[in-house]
């Protein structure tokens, strides 16, 4: 039983770190703001959740567990809402997405990565 818990905890941590890393690569490499936000917003929630679950499996103590659960619930609330608000503010302040920009230019700049 102990072994199963340890292995699943390690798996969660590994998967969470991988997701966070892919989000980090996304924020560096992707071409415009909205695509970057998509990379970060998605991986942030899932990666953070997986890492926190992995930590919860590491330490089955009462108070620590409750605090980790609190952080998990708050992350699940906060991260998507922040991404939503950010995208909305960017759209309202006339930051045009890359795909729209290319269409408006008649495809002349569509060779841009």
């Amino acid at each position: 039983m102990e072994l199963i818990v340890d292995i699943s905890s390690a798996l969660c941590l590994l998967l969470g770190s991988f997701l966070c890393l892919s989000g980090g690569v996304g924020i560096m490499r992707l071409p415009d703001f909205y695509t970057r936000m998509h990379a970060v917003g998605v991986t942030d929630t899932l990666g953070a959740g997986l890492i926190l679950i992995g930590l919860m499996l590491q330490n089955p103590e009462g108070l620590v567990e409750i605090k980790l659960l609190l952080i998990l619930v708050m992350t699940l609330f906060i991260s998507p809402v922040a991404s939503h608000a950010l995208a909305k503010a960017a759209l309202r302040n006339h930051l045009v997405p890359l795909s729209d920009r290319n269409e408006n230019n008649g495809g002349t700049e569509s060779s841009k990565p």
Binding site: R36, M37, V40, D44, L86
Partner: peptide, 9 residues
């Protein structure tokens, strides 16, 4: 907005 996104992450 890129900066805000970076701070958030």
């Amino acid at each position: 907005y890129d900066r805000i996104l970076a701070v958030n992450m």
